[in-house]
């Protein structure tokens, strides 16, 4: 079978807003959807300064832990208007905000369950490739304790992935570098 070498990645650069801005991109569900929460945070660089020209993309299951995609044999239908996908820029202060439904537990495909999580990609000037992380939820302690990916990390690093409840949803800051560097994944 033909094997082709993948095209190498490159940075989005400082002008990503021209090509990647979507009207309403931060709404994974339409505003006002019952049960909607805001997932918020700030992206920081190695100096602890906010990164104000990044883009954060999110991808997640619905509240039943399902995906509207041909490779999820179970499908997803119960949440009209739910896209699973969010895209937010951190202009002008390094903050991102995504309006979504909290995901359910997702099968790991081997008979177990993963804890509720959101896959996150961060793109920015100075990042030659996207960096990938996951958001977990502090109020899912039981599920988190069973999650193979989370439990595979040293305890002090695990905390970098766990969003804490706020007035209108959850918060997780992302640290590209430094003592509090977020756990990033190779996918």
């Amino acid at each position: 079978m033909t094997r082709l070498q993948p095209t190498p990645s490159a940075t989005v650069g400082p002008y990503l807003a021209i090509g990647l801005t979507w009207e309403g991109g931060e709404f994974v569900v339409p505003p006002g959807t019952p049960g909607a929460v805001w997932l918020r945070g700030t992206v920081f660089d190695g100096n602890g300064d906010p990164v104000s020209d990044a883009m954060v993309e999110t991808w997640q299951a619905d509240p039943d832990g399902r995906f509207d995609h041909p490779d999820d044999p179970r499908g997803s239908a119960r949440y009209p208007g739910f896209t699973g996908f969010g895209r937010a820029q951190t202009v002008p202060d390094g903050d991102y905000a995504i309006c979504t439904l909290k995901p359910g537990r997702v099968p790991d495909g081997e008979g177990g369950l993963q804890a509720p999580h959101v896959d996150v990609s961060v793109f920015a000037r100075g990042l030659l490739d996207r960096v990938v992380t996951r958001v977990y939820f502090a109020d899912e302690a039981e599920a988190n304790a069973e999650d193979v990916v989370l439990q595979g990390l040293p305890e002090d690093r695990r905390q970098t992935l766990i969003a804490t409840p706020t007035d209108d949803g959850y918060r997780l800051d992302l640290y590209l570098q430094g003592d509090r560097e977020t756990v990033f994944f190779a996918v």
């Binding site: 190695g46 999820d72 100075g126 560097e181 990033f184």
Partner: peptide, 22 residues
């Protein structure tokens, strides 16, 4: 100041990773 310095952790490819937005 932006490139992460720690080695990334291999993420297994589960449902979230093999699907994408339509």
């Amino acid at each position: 100041l932006r490139a992460p310095l720690r080695t990334p952790v291999d993420l297994p490819h589960r449902l979230t990773e093999v699907t994408r937005p339509l």
